[in-house]
């Protein structure tokens, strides 16, 4: 990482937090988000998966070590649980790296004065676009509920909602800037943003719903618990990532400006 360090030239003093540092902040924040998410996974999600598997086994009347799936792969439940934990951690670190880069690119568009405030805003936006909004039309399901006939269509809709959401956020920010440039009053800008969000919500709700049949042995209760757990898990991931990223970056900036002053620049 030190090689990258020297390769990046600072544009201005305090904003010049080097890319090596930025990425390290991102990775650490991502790992922290992943950890928080794993805690929720074990407290709220794994128990529900366990309940679902028990019910399925009762229905099939025999024990299947492979869990709810019958792909013929030799993966035990424990391996799936450990694998799931590692997956969430790895995804957290990767998202943290991407977060650091996107944050560097867009932070000046947020009005919050601290890194903590701006990072939390970006994280809240990310949670909304990649987790909360898609979950309205393509909700999370415990293993063994979705049909393999519809998984292609559900995936397509899910990805499209995320893609459109990202574009939508870009358009709203651009609209807002255009409104500022034209000298439109804050109330007018607020209305404009609210109208755009309302239109966005309409678009999301007009997305065709993929009909899903939940096996009759699975209580609605269980599906609900799983969906809530899943959303809490992604919320924990993004919130923690935002907070840790903001705090780390803030600390780095302070350290940087102190050392710059010490060097008499």
């Amino acid at each position: 990482m030190d090689g990258m360090h020297s390769a990046c030239r600072a544009t201005d003093t305090v904003a010049a937090t080097s890319w090596g540092l930025r990425l390290r902040c991102g990775a650490v924040a991502g790992a922290a988000g992943g950890l928080a998410s794993v805690v929720v996974l074990w407290l709220m999600v794994e128990p529900v998966i366990g309940r679902a598997i028990l019910l399925e086994e009762e229905m099939h009347g025999r024990h299947e070590a492979g869990g709810a799936h019958e792909h013929g792969a030799t993966v035990t439940r424990l391996q799936q649980q450990i694998g799931g934990t590692i997956t969430v951690l790895v995804v957290g670190v990767l998202l943290g790296l991407a977060f650091a880069v996107i944050y560097a690119r867009v932070q000046h568009r947020f009005s919050e004065e601290t890194d903590l405030g701006r990072a939390l805003s970006l994280a809240a936006l990310a949670f909304t676009v990649v987790a909360a909004v898609p979950s309205v039309m393509v909700p999370a399901n415990p293993p063994g509920i979705g049909s393999s006939d519809t998984v292609g269509r559900r995936t397509l809709i899910y990805l499209l909602i995320i893609l459109v959401g990202v574009l939508f956020v870009g358009v709203v920010f651009a609209l807002h800037r255009a409104a500022v440039d034209r000298g439109i009053a804050p109330e007018g800008r607020w209305l404009l943003t609210a109208a755009a969000v309302a239109i966005g919500a309409l678009v999301v709700f007009s997305v065709p719903h993929v009909e899903e049949r939940v096996p009759s042995v699975i209580p609605a209760d269980l599906v609900w618990d799983f969906r809530v757990g899943s959303l809490v898990q992604t919320a924990a991931l993004w919130t923690t990532m935002g907070i840790v990223h903001g705090v780390l970056l803030h600390r780095e900036r302070e350290r940087e400006s102190v050392s710059l002053m010490a060097r008499g620049r």
Partner: peptide, 14 residues
């Protein structure tokens, strides 16, 4: 299979 719990937990269609 090994990422299965993680995928479902994060709300990805499967």
């Amino acid at each position: 299979e090994v990422t299965h719990d993680g995928r479902h937990a994060l709300g990805v269609p499967c």
